[in-house]
Structure formats: C-alpha cells, structure tokens
Design a protein around this nucleic acid. Sequence first.
DNA 1: AATGAATGAGTGTTCATTCAT
DNA 2: TATGAATGAACACTCATTCAT
Lengths: 201, 201, 201, 201
Amino acid sequence: MPKTEQQCNEIKKQTRKKILHDSMLYFARNGFAGTKISDLAKHIGIGQGTLYLYFASKEDLFQEIQKMIEEKQDIKEMKLLAHLPISAKKKIMNLSKTVLARLSKDENFAGMIALNTQMMLEQDCYNSSSDTTYQSELYKCTAAIIEQGQKEGTVVTGNAMKLADYYWGVVYLYALKKLFTTQYEMIEAKDLSRTLLVKGE
Amino acid sequence: MPKTEQQCNEIKKQTRKKILHDSMLYFARNGFAGTKISDLAKHIGIGQGTLYLYFASKEDLFQEIQKMIEEKQDIKEMKLLAHLPISAKKKIMNLSKTVLARLSKDENFAGMIALNTQMMLEQDCYNSSSDTTYQSELYKCTAAIIEQGQKEGTVVTGNAMKLADYYWGVVYLYALKKLFTTQYEMIEAKDLSRTLLVKGE
Amino acid sequence: MPKTEQQCNEIKKQTRKKILHDSMLYFARNGFAGTKISDLAKHIGIGQGTLYLYFASKEDLFQEIQKMIEEKQDIKEMKLLAHLPISAKKKIMNLSKTVLARLSKDENFAGMIALNTQMMLEQDCYNSSSDTTYQSELYKCTAAIIEQGQKEGTVVTGNAMKLADYYWGVVYLYALKKLFTTQYEMIEAKDLSRTLLVKGE
Amino acid sequence: MPKTEQQCNEIKKQTRKKILHDSMLYFARNGFAGTKISDLAKHIGIGQGTLYLYFASKEDLFQEIQKMIEEKQDIKEMKLLAHLPISAKKKIMNLSKTVLARLSKDENFAGMIALNTQMMLEQDCYNSSSDTTYQSELYKCTAAIIEQGQKEGTVVTGNAMKLADYYWGVVYLYALKKLFTTQYEMIEAKDLSRTLLVKGE
DNA sequence: AATGAATGAGTGTTCATTCAT
DNA sequence: TATGAATGAACACTCATTCAT
C-alpha cells in the first residue's frame, strides 16, 4: 500500500515477523511434513498467496524460522549469569527457575526450545561431524557453570558438555509438554537443578 | 502358497511382524506425516502393494504399531521389579541400568520408547481428560517404587506420578538421541537415577 | 486530475493508448497464456492495478488489442494502390517494397501482422465456417490485384484468395523473425513478389 | 506390472512414446504456457500422475519432445535427394511435392515442423550467436541444392542459407494451417518451389 | 487516478491407494 | 500372494483480480 509514503515496509516487516512467529509455533507442534500451507495460512490469518510474498517456499519459511531462533536464543542473559561472582549452585538454581518460569508463561519460548532441539537432533543425523554450531554458545555457557560447580564440589562429576546436553534435554522435554498438553504438571526448579547438582535442595 | 496348505499363513504372520517392526523404526525417525509409503516399502524391502495386503491404510498400520507397542512394553519385568523385597533406591538404580543398557544396544527399544511418548503427548493434546490409558501401567509401577522410596527417604518429595513422568521423559530424550544421532553420548545410570534420588551415587 | 477539469481524460486516452500499444508487442512475443499481468505491467511501466482501470480483464485487454489491429490495418493505402491505373506487377512490387520496409523499421507493424495472423489461425480453428471477417478487406484487395495480374499474364494461375493468403503468410513469417530474432536477414521485395509473379525480377 | 517378465518395460517404452507423441501435437497447437497438465493428460488418455512417472516436470516433457524432434527430422531422405545426379530444379520440385504431401496427410509431421521452427525462433531470441545447431543439417542440404541450382541458372540469386530459410519458413506456414484450421487450402508444389526457382511451372 | 499488497481460484506436482498381472 | 504401474485427491505454489490507501 502507498500508505503515507516511507513506512509501508514498516507494515511489511511487521507482517513478516508475525508470519515467522506464528509459523514457528505451528511447525513446532506439527512438524515440517505435518504442516499444510493452507492450514498454516488460516492459522496465521492470512491468504495462502500472502505467505509467498514473504517467503519463497515452505522450505524457505522453515529455514528462516530456524535462523530467527538461532539469533534469538537469549544467550546474553546466560552469559551474564555465567560471569556473575556467585556459586555455581546458585547460578544453576537461578537459571532453572528462570527457564521454567518462561516455559510456563511463554509458548513462544517453548516453541523455540522445541524447534531448536529438533534442529540439533536432525542436524546430527546428517552431519555427525558438525561442530554443533549455533547451540554451542548456550551449551558452552552452561558447561562453564558446570565446570565451576565441579570445582566447588556442588555439581556431579562427568563430561561438562554431556551434562549440559542432559540439562537442556530436560528443558526440551517440558517445552514439548507445554506445546502439546493442555493440563500438564510443570517440573519444579529443584527437579531440573537436580540433573546437575550433587545434592538437591 | 504351494506350501501344501498348513502354514502358508505362518509366512504371513512373519511378514506382518516384519512390516510392523521395520515401520516402527521408520515412523519413529520420520514421523507419520514425514513417512511416504513408497519409501517405507523400499526400506522394508517389499512392494508398495504388499503393505495393503496386511494393513488397510497408512493410518491403520500406524495404529497397529501403536497397539503392538502398548502390548510389548516390558511391564512384566517392571512389575516384577516393583514387588521385589529390596530398597526403592536399588530398584531405581537397577531399572535405570537395565533401561539404558537396552537403549544402547537395541534400536527397536528406542523406537518404541520414542513412539510411545509421542503418542502420549499427542493424545494429551486432543484428549486432555484421558485417563492416561495404556502408559499408566508403566507409570504406575514406577510411581509405586517412587512412593516406596519417599517413605524410605531416598527419593525426593513431590507427586509420584509427576516424578515418574519426569523419569520416563529423560528416557525418551535418550531414545531420541539413539534414533537420530550417530555419535551420541549416552547418559549413565546414576545420571538417570538422580532424577529421583535424594542423593546421587 | 487537478488538471482543472477539461482534459484530464486527454491523459486517460494517452495512457489507454500506451497500454494497448505496449501490450500488443508483449502479447505478440509471448502469446496470451504466456503473458503474466505482473510482467506486462512492469514492461509498460505502470502498476498492475492501473491496468484494471482501463480494461476489465486480461481477456478484455487482448480483445481490445485485436479490435485496434483490425481498425488500424492500413487498408486505405492498399485500396488506393488497388485502384491505381498501373499494372498488377507494379502494384505487387510496390506493395512488397512498402510492406517489407515497414516490417524492417517498425516493430509495431510486425506485432500487428503477427497477432492478426495468429487471430486468423485460431479463429479458423474454432469457427471454420467463419466468413474470414475482418482480414477479408486486406485479402480482397490483394486478391483483386492478383486477378488483375492473372489477366495481364504476370501473376501465376490459381485461386486468387489462396494466393493472397500465401502472400500474407510469407509476410507473417518475416514479422515473426522481426519480433523474435535479433540478427535476422530480411527477405527482399523481389523474393516476396515471387510468391505471386510468373517470373521474378 | 510384472507382466510375463522381461518386457514390462516394453510397455513403458510404448507409453513414453505415446506421451511424447501426443504431447507434441498438443504443445504445437497450444504452446507451452497454454497447455495445462490436466488437459494434456486427458487428451492423451492417462492420469495426471502417470505423466510424472515418465517425465520429471512439464518443462522436462517439453524438452524431451524437442530432443525427439531434433533426432527425427527426416534428414536422411533429404541428404539422399541432395546427392542424386539430377538437376536442382527437379530436386526442388521433388522435395516440395514430398514435403507438402506429408504435411497434408500427417499431422505429426506438421507438429514437428511447427515446434521445430518455433524452437528456432525462440532460440535465436536468447542466443543470437547460436550456430543454428540442429536445424543446420536440413538447411545445409537445402542450401546445397540451391547453390547447385544457382549455377545451373534455375534458382534465383541471393544468399543460399537465407533462401533455404525462406523455403522452410513457407513450409512452417502451412504446417500451422494444417494444425489450426479445419478447412484449409494447401499450397501446391509449384507454389512452394516458386520461392526458389527463377521461373515457376 | 494510481499503486502494489493481499487474495483465492487455478495450475503443477506428490503420494496414498488400487488393480491388472 | 506379491508387485509396481496407474490413478486422482490433496498438496505446494502461481497469478489474475481486488482494494485500502
């Protein structure tokens, strides 16, 4: 539309964002193959054709969603947490509380976690030598905290990366529950923390 | 078929079993929508048409697989374990060791766990008032052990069913890893046990 | 539009003409089915929507182009030529020279000839009993000259209309060359005339 | 079908041929953009899906048709004619008679000529420096005859290739008539020959 | 009056299912 | 019984047309 003048592409950006956002949740719930463009468009509330004004194909849309997730992943907070001058145990309980709280309130966060983990799984599948690219930031931060905790004697022994993977795996689990089940019992922070801590509570 | 007459349907049973089995893994990896009959048949090593001699439709095949899983789920062992006169902590560590060992060795077990959990998730989605039908056996057994442990003071406090759900969720996680990743780090029994036990080791 | 009032529809006429003209060439090159409104509008240098201010539909635009061609067809000159008191041979060589010269210089003329002939071909297809409507004028004039030439012994024997059809068919041929090829060798007037004349040169 | 054994792909070859053949005529009449797969399949008498068992896409089918035409083009006869120890005039009249006779009887021949010429036109369009690849054989043979005739004084002067192009252009013209019109007047051999010969009859 | 973003009917392509062998 | 070629309903994608600005 020739709205006023300049920012008709303000609207375009808005629409693009809405599509990306709404599609993310839809894909997270139904998977790529299980998502029909016709249904997706209806769910977003736009015409089928409109989708193709913003994305070249279903595949392209999916990839853009993945890109978005990679960029978003709130790693900044994580990094901040990792560098605070507090005990690893505190950090872990803090992180767990924060993550579970967001998971409870925010479906988008759940969708992001779910898609992100699925991407990692499938990526591993075809590309086992992958350097675990994007997720590494998140995992590295967690691993750093774990190593600190191991020195402090509050975190269980074992490969730090493997433990970080375990921790986020559990988060993925409850992201799925958030996405798929209506009445679910969210885990508690102490339960999540227990994946890492020597002695819970 | 010129097998005189007797057990030409011995062969039929055999074929049906093979289809169910091979399809299970394929579905677990690719999902229902992501599975094409043509690919599936090739993967099994039979003609597309043959599938329809044994199953009425793709949907029917999928349901039969689900039934099979429900029936198989080695609950007997579980029940046995649950009623042994040993401490809950021992039971849990035992169970964890057994489950993870099977997961490592047996892709079918991984497939079963994966499909089973996905079924539960999707079922919840559309049928939130479900009485958690089939999975309940497995979960009830685990919950019983958990309750025993809580009395003994070795298992963390909290709703027993929720904790059982958590426990099997982690198992699901590593079933996925088994199915999707080529080089994965399996969790250790003590890590799995820690989801429930007050103090690891 | 703030053009006071008088001839803001002078501009409208101008635009309509431009659309008709530019579309004609585009249709001639790409055919009806092969022409997309989006591409056409870009080619003309207007918005897609603008087209629909001047024409009800793609089909309508195409029909208006056809009408325009029918009306334009410089039959007047032809008629004039037909009635001049000179030999048929002269008339034919004259006509050939003129037609080929215009073809060389004027893409629009080529487009008109091409579309016109294609119309005739397709019309015949669905309406074989057609009285060859509009093109008849042009053909009748040519046939008249042919008949004159046959009497004078300079034009080959045969049905005059069929020969006229042949003559303009060759013109169509070189209209296509003009439209589609960048470096083409235009036929010479004597070559075109030879379709009719007993003895060339 | 597992017919007897070996030649179920005899049938496949047959079907492929039928599709190629029937599509050729359909494309010749309607153009690429004007041809709908649904209509084409109906016209051939097969299901839409069947087309995609034999050809990867509409575009692919079209290209295969073009390949087929290039290969077919009955150049052998032409070459034979070109090398006979008879006068160029005889050769030309012979050729004209043969070509027009086939055009009258054989729609496929008409389709081939039409598509072939259209290919050449479009090819020129995008690739003006093309060495006129495949059609050259046919044109070269004709040009050779023309040159012979020019020496013998029976063929008009001028660039031989240009004249060959003219000759086959006229053939194209009547291929179109054959394809599009129901009641058409085919040109006569002497008319076609006159494009080249100094003096008709 | 002019625009181009939005739309959905229509087109190309895929895939679960059937069926002749 | 087993097969895979054939099918058409369903899906991804395109494009003529509309409409808010």
